[in-house]
Design a protein around this nucleic acid. Sequence first.
DNA 1: CGCGGAATTGATGTGCATCAACTCGGGTGG
DNA 2: CCACCCGAGTTGATGCACATCAATTCCGCG
Lengths: 253, 253
Amino acid sequence: MSQQKVISLETIRVACKNCTLSSLCLPMGLAQEDVERLDDIVKRARPLHRGDFLFREGERFRSIYVVKTGSVKTFAPSPEGNEQILGFHLPGEIIGLDAIDKSIHACSAKVLETSAICEIPFARLEELTASIASLQHQIYRLLSKEIGQDTQMLLLLGKKNAEERLAAFLLSLSQRFHKRGLSPSDFYLSMSRHEIGNYLGLAVETVSRLFTRFQEDGLMDVDRKHIQLLDLPALEALVCGSAHYRRQQRQPG
Amino acid sequence: MSQQKVISLETIRVACKNCTLSSLCLPMGLAQEDVERLDDIVKRARPLHRGDFLFREGERFRSIYVVKTGSVKTFAPSPEGNEQILGFHLPGEIIGLDAIDKSIHACSAKVLETSAICEIPFARLEELTASIASLQHQIYRLLSKEIGQDTQMLLLLGKKNAEERLAAFLLSLSQRFHKRGLSPSDFYLSMSRHEIGNYLGLAVETVSRLFTRFQEDGLMDVDRKHIQLLDLPALEALVCGSAHYRRQQRQPG
DNA sequence: CGCGGAATTGATGTGCATCAACTCGGGTGG
DNA sequence: CCACCCGAGTTGATGCACATCAATTCCGCG
């Protein structure tokens, strides 16, 4: 059974490498030896449980994290005291990049379900990127991509109504699951309705009513946390505001 | 007058260096020779005029831009066709970081008033960062900071009401002007009411009414584009929702 | 089995968008 | 220099999407 344990660790290790690979470097085609150097600094994923924190707002920034399995939410307090959920992070996604600037975490990261998370000490990653140009580029891209995603979210919160927001949210999950080889139309929500509402800037009740309405309209099937998207094209049309007489917003000069 | 011209160019050059310095490296304390290497790749600022584009959505990404004087807005089209203003960029601020990921600009950048803008070819900057560790770190910080700012904006759009948004907007401008040595309480708005509304997710009329109300309440003085903030502490309190019976939002688990 | 938080559903209230009318100021041309 | 125009801004009246409040059901868990 010692053998068993070794195999198990190796399995985690390989899985972790794969995860790091796809998140950090797959598109770049790093040399094999560089991949190994990268993999060496990645701390293997230990299993975390619902409610565990990866880090808390105010803590010193040391590492970024890559979700291997499971899901994580990040959230920050607003001045008033209530909190805003900033994102839900699925397998393959990276957490903590916003803390590089001040070396202090500006948000907290909490595990939503039993999850495996890789930790990458940022200082060591930074050293590595100094000698591997393609990895450096990859990190720039990663950071830039995060900005682009936030931009999408600004558009969502600034210009879209409740049903457009929820449709966009569902499609986002769908696409991200699909990218990781999972079903794009059949999945479980690891977050509560309340958390969805908080994230989308809506009240719980509104989220609930929309789920009901979407189901009535044959767009999806909802059974508690289990979601089946039945009409992806229709949902995509919804995001673009196909429903409702569109209030045409005048353009600024 | 040939002499005059040389002096003028040199003035721009030095100013440009200063601008690059404070934006990219001041906090790091680069070696003098590294500063010069950085400065060498910065294209000197030519004057741009209201309505000029730095780049348009869909164009190939080549350079990032640093505002020296004046102001710039960035905006992206939503699927419906109307556009969302993503940010207003004041002196010392950097534009274009979101395009690194795809090497394509996802938003457009339009000059709001006569402005001087430095251009930094990103490929050359990237080469440079590979050999100057502190510059690499600085770029990471810059990108990370941008993420943090977007996060702030998500909080604004997700959780704050109209008057909190406008107060936050005014204070943001105030702080950014102050950081550049300008008055934090007396400045001109280079953007229209309509653009402010678009940015904050509000209707023009709402913005206008709030300006009136803030003025009535003695918080500020508004004369067309000329703004004077008379009670900064009160505005700060407003951002935190001090006014109005605060609808206490329940927290998700 | 029974407690408690999560989710749903219905009734009501309100903040802000929308519509509409008017004013202001700045630029243009006679 | 004034008359005109036109877009930007303001102000008021109205409507609606969504928040809020309230009551009930559902489900997980001890």
